[in-house]
Design a protein around this nucleic acid. Structure first.
Lengths: 147, 147
DNA sequence: TATTGTTATACTCTATAACTATA
DNA sequence: TATAGTTATAGAGTATAACAATA
C-alpha cells in the first residue's frame, strides 16, 4: 500500500498532512511548555520576545488576536517574573514588554525539550532538510497573511 | 532539485518554520470555520467524523484531550444539528457520534474556503508538491505520537 | 479624531475529580 | 475492577464593547 512513488498527491491530502503536522507540532510545543509550568501561548509570547522588546499591540499582531487579550497574558507572565512592562520613551501610551533573563532561560528549556519534533527531523538527512526548508519557505508568505 | 541550496539550514530554523506554518494553517482553518458559525475545534470534530461514526472516547483520542471535554463539544454540535448521538448496539455504555447531512455540507464548505492555504499550495508545481508530500509523510509518524 | 492599553463580559476549550451505568 | 460518558469546577484564551490617557 505504501506507494514509493507519490505520483502527484491530491491537493487535499497535502493540505491535511500539513494540518496534521501543524497540530502535532503545536501539541509538542505546548506539552514542553506545560512541563515547565507554562501554557503554549505563554511560551509562544516568550519566543516572540526573544528578538527584542515588543509593545502590547505588537504582541497582539503576532498572536493574531484582539489587543484586549494581551493584558491578561502578559499579566500572568509578569507574575512569574518572565517578562516586565516598561514605558516607551517616545510614546507615553505605549508599554514595551521585555523578556527577563529568567524568561530567556525558560524558553530555551522549552525549545530544547521538544523531543518529538526533534526526533522527527532526525529522520531526514541534511540534504532533505534543505529541500524541505526551501519548499516550506515558499509556502510561508501567503499563509502568514491568512488572517 | 532546486538550484538554491540554503547551505544546510540550522535545525532550529526548520523547526520554527514548521511551527509558523502549522500555526498559520490552523488559523486559516479556524477563520474559515468562524465564517460559518463554528469554532476551529468544532470543525475539526466534523472533519474527523467524515470517515464514519466515532464513540465519544474515540473523539477524545483524536483531539488528544480529556474525555470530559467531548461532552460539551458534542452538545454544542448537536444543538446546531450537525451531529447526533446514537447508542451503540454492542455496548450499552458507548454512544456513537454520527455526522448529519447538514454537518457534512458544513465541513465541505469550511474546507473549500481555506483560501490562504489553497493559494499557498498553488505556488508549488506538481513535482514540488509531490516532493513536499513525500518529505512530510516521513515526518508524520513520530510527530503524531508526540503527546 | 485616532490609537494604546485596560476593564468588563460572555463563550469555548482545557484538565482534574467525582459520579453513574454499564462491562 | 475497569471502562464510557457525564457533571462540576476552575483556569486560560478569545472576541466584543466601552473607557481613559495620549497622540
Amino acid at each position: 500500500m505504501s506507494a514509493s512513488t507519490p505520483s502527484a498527491p491530491a491537493k487535499i491530502e497535502l493540505l491535511e498532512l500539513l494540518a496534521a503536522l501543524g497540530t502535532a507540532q503545536w501539541r509538542d510545543f505546548s506539552a514542553a511548555a506545560t512541563r515547565h509550568g507554562l501554557t503554549g501561548t505563554q511560551a509562544k509570547v516568550l519566543a516572540h520576545l526573544g528578538g527584542g522588546p515588543l509593545p502590547m499591540r505588537g504582541l497582539a499582531d503576532r498572536l493574531v488576536c484582539d489587543a484586549s487579550n494581551i493584558t491578561g497574558i502578559v499579566d500572568r507572565l509578569e507574575d512569574q517574573g518572565l517578562v516586565r512592562r516598561e514605558p516607551s520613551p517616545t510614546d507615553r501610551r505605549v508599554k514595551n514588554v521585555v523578556i527577563t533573563s529568567l524568561g530567556r532561560e525558560m524558553i530555551v528549556r522549552v525549545r530544547t525539550e521538544m523531543q518529538a519534533t526533534h526526533s522527527a527531523l532526525d529522520t531526514l538527512n541534511v540534504e532533505e532538510q534543505a529541500t524541505l526548508y526551501a519548499l516550506l519557505t515558499r509556502l510561508r508568505p501567503p499563509l502568514e497573511h491568512s488572517a
